[in-house]
Design a protein around this nucleic acid. Structure first.
Lengths: 136, 136
DNA sequence: CGGGATCCCGACGGATACTG
DNA sequence: CAGTATCCGTCGGGATCCCG
């Protein structure tokens, strides 16, 4: 079994690191929203239903740290803070958008496979029994 | 359960669900390795440095459940189990490969941005201070 | 050899409450 | 408005033992 693509393992480490950065619960959502243009903190908060202000802050800090987002403070009263994608962030949006498109077009296939798997094994819930993986 | 509102989610929810499935620590690595051809359990274990047998099992179960991987048992002694990508899995490899390629070409830009951010703020570690996000 | 069962810990992430 | 600080539950995931 010789790898026909010798660079595959070399390709997988960067992707793992990238997933460690933006593979969390909210980063991609935020980047996707900012893809339409700059938004203020509350605007993001309102658009992302279910996110806590703590996680939104942390997510934005992380994205800013990795150079995907800029943070601009307007010293008005009350203060305004605007977040905007950098060039790097907009670049990232391309492959992420492709993945999103794939997900949109193939989610039915994945769901079908999952239902079939769950039917063949006696699973009460929608979750693999002895598996700590996968999300609801 | 989390009540999702249809605000933004039309475009971004599929990608979030996909990330919830393959965005974990090992799934993409396994899929990437299987892209070269079927592999046995121990072969995967040996190739993925640092993975525990529990997580490899769980990852493979999850991938099998979602229809990305097939599991074939050969009733030999000792038993052999081979894992192979399905058509869906190979399809997934395309956008994931694109993302991996992006990560490979842009990791320097991300690292530079991160170092600059950490220098501007007084950060002792390589980690954002008040942020629970980002990886070691 | 492949993988199930358990124990355990630290990180992720939600819910307030407080500040400038 | 835009955070920061604190408490706390959940769960990903590593280590270990055991079984067909």
């Amino acid at each position: 079994m010789k790898p026909r693509h010798p660079t595959l393992t070399a390709e997988c480490r960067p992707i793992s690191e990238l997933l460690a950065r933006i593979g969390d619960k909210w980063s991609v959502l935020v980047v996707g929203l900012l893809g339409d243009g700059p938004l203020r903190f509350s605007a993001l908060r309102r658009r992302i239903d279910g996110i806590s202000q703590k996680m939104l802050t942390a997510t934005l800090r992380s994205l800013e740290r990795d150079g995907f987002v800029t943070r601009t403070v307007f010293p008005t009263t009350p203060p305004q803070v605007e977040y905007e994608l950098t060039d790097l962030g907009r670049d990232l949006l391309v492959p992420v958008g492709a993945l999103a498109e794939w997900a949109r077009q193939n989610q039915a296939r994945v769901d079908d496979a999952r239902r079939q798997f769950d039917r063949q094994n006696g699973v009460a819930n929608g979750r693999a029994q002895a598996s700590p993986l996968s999300a609801p």
